[in-house]
Design a protein around this nucleic acid. Structure first.
Lengths: 354, 354
DNA sequence: CCGGCTTTTGCAACCGGTTTCAGGAATGCT
DNA sequence: AGCATTCCTGAAACCGGTTGCAAAAGCCGG
């Protein structure tokens, strides 16, 4: 019969495999060296069942001799998982994300997983591209370290792959969200300024409708209300979460001649820009104007003057996200407590002038 | 015969596959939907041979209908490559590396590859771990964005996988190295300070024996020599490439009462620290002391005052490294020209005081 | 010394693609 | 029309692991 013939003379058993420069050591080679079958070798490596001591030693010796490392692609294919977690953040280069990524990496590695980072650059379309790419690559889960993709789309993806997302609150199966307490942080900052006697406090916000910015704005307003100070919308100006936005905000505030003695910035980078603009305008920090940031980036310690800021350890946030992902993958419902936000008082704030 | 029986009733054709929640669309499903064989579908997807228009359309329709995306692990296994480049850097969180990683990512993605980042944290042992991990994962190449692993070990790895390394000069097969012109950059910085009339210029270096630091020191000495100023070793103090080192260096310089009117720092982060320490000591920048950095990190534009620095676009360096890797993989001997270093004069430098 | 029970081990199927090989259809040439 | 080419397509081998099943081996009491 046809089949029999084919079986008898396998078509390509001896044929050279064209453009495939395989140079690596395979499990079969190890097994042959140790005088066992590939299955046994595999079982020894993964400790799936008991194997006689004798064979175990033989296989281990062979592994050491060849420096064998199992091929991840083959393993992934057979197991249906890759021990890899996709991480989507917005911008690698930013100190904020860098910190978080570092936290994610360290926790993930300890858990035996490797992170695969991709940047969305604040564009929903790019985030979708990243998602697709990561899913294609068969990652076991995806951590979205804040993103602008809408909730519905994100939930849809959660049906294909476990997801941990920071910076928003959202409930779904196989999806964990975690958000720092922005309102409370903003209130801490404001209370500090109010305690120092400031009454005219500006707030430099971020992009329109960015959830973090909005939450912090709510905290700002609540703090004012609690102190019995009326809310003046002219003191709230838009920024872009970066230095440039902070600078423009200061220029705008000064040009419109609205008096203020302190500024609360939506994040540290904005505060850096504000600091420079104030310097250009000849204002001293904190003698003339006090400045408070949010995030407490490592660089803030070394600003001139060192910046007072609301600390949310971004690195810890990253670690928590990774931890949540590990628990999710282990089939547990993650129970994560975020590190509390706290105010770090440095030298950019002082008593209100006059 | 035994074999015949097994063939007739395949052992596990109907058995459920235990812990394998496969949910993805496979090539076979697409092929069946389109009424062709898997081989044909594969050929259409990869454009490996001509296929009749009719079938092509049918397959494309099926792909669209199911939202099929080929499984990367299977592809990697069959092809012997993963379209993934491992990237080893030292610290994700650092602004310097963040910039470079961003450059690498953007170039790699345009070339159809994805980066797999891992951090070595300045420890040779960790770098080795990263290397092994990346090789296990079957990356097609590795970019080492500066590292402390010794040349010999690196060359050895180059025999297993193509490597691009920055921050050192090294020749080997399947290995490309690229290094910015540190000496020249340092000379630019020094010439600027000398032109402003400075004669007592301190140099804050990095870790002992770090090649970048040494090269920049050479530039420093050459510039002094060219200006006919004797080299005073007391003006050279060690740092750590970070803010803390810059601060300590200033304290050390001031405490030892060596007069100086300008400082050249081995990198921007060091300069930031120096700036803060000078501020604490009541010295004004640039009125009392001029400060120059190296790298021109984005944050330097927004320091108070904005920092004069030697620009080496780290992002472009990253892009170049990625470009070199792509060429290496394409089988070409990469010919890469690094962007030139240049001095960016801002407000941290001024004429030498009295 | 033998049957029943518990390991230990190997065979071969399988993961989801790619690619070789060969068969069949279509086309070219004499 | 007849035979050699060329083109298109599908069957099956293969990449390098994991694993269900069953045969083989080891252990036991009777």
């Amino acid at each position: 019969m046809k089949k029999a013939r084919v079986k008898a003379v396998p078509a390509r058993t001896r044929g050279k495999r064209g453009p495939r420069p395989r140079n690596s050591v395979t499990l079969k080679m190890v097994a042959r060296e140790a005088g066992v079958s590939a299955s046994t070798a595999s079982r020894i490596i993964n400790r799936t069942v008991n194997v006689s001591e004798e064979l175990r030693l033989a296989v281990e010796a062979a592994i050491a001799k060849f420096g064998f490392r199992p091929n991840a692609a083959a393993r992934g294919l057979a197991l249906g998982k890759t021990e890899t977690i996709g991480v989507i953040s917005q911008a690698m280069a930013s100190p904020f994300y860098g910190e978080g990524l570092r936290g994610i990496e360290s926790r993930l590695l300890r858990g035996g997983y490797a992170p695969l980072f991709m940047s969305g650059n604040w564009q929903e379309k790019e985030e979708v591209r990243c998602m697709e790419e990561l899913i294609t690559r068969g990652v076991d889960g995806i951590i979205m370290f804040t993103g602008c993709m809408n909730d519905v789309a994100l939930k849809a993806y959660a049906r294909k792959v476990p997801i941990v997302v920071t910076g928003r609150t959202l409930r779904a199966r196989r999806l964990v969200s975690m958000q720092v307490d922005d309102q409370y942080g903003a209130m801490l900052a404001m209370r500090h300024l109010l305690d120092l006697g400031h009454r005219r406090i500006a707030f430099v916000t971020g992009f329109e409708n960015h959830p973090d910015a909005n939450e912090r704005l709510v905290g700002y307003r609540n703090a004012l209300a609690a102190a019995g100070i009326p809310y003046d919308p002219r003191l709230v100006v838009a920024g872009d979460f970066h230095e440039e936005g902070g600078m423009q905000a200061v220029y705008q505030l000064m040009d419109s001649n609205i008096g203020f003695t302190a500024m609360f910035c939506v994040n540290d980078e904005t505060a850096y820009g504000a600091g420079l603009a104030l310097f250009r305008k000849g204002m001293r920090v904190p003698e003339d104007i006090s400045v408070v940031g949010f995030d407490d980036l490592p660089a803030s310690t070394y600003r001139v003057p060192p910046l007072t800021s609301v600390r949310q350890s971004v690195q810890q946030l990253g670690e928590c996200a990774a931890e949540a992902m590990l628990q999710l993958l282990a089939g547990r419902r993650p129970l994560i407590v975020l590190p509390p936000v706290e105010l770090v008082v440095r030298e950019s704030t002082g008593r209100a002038a006059g």
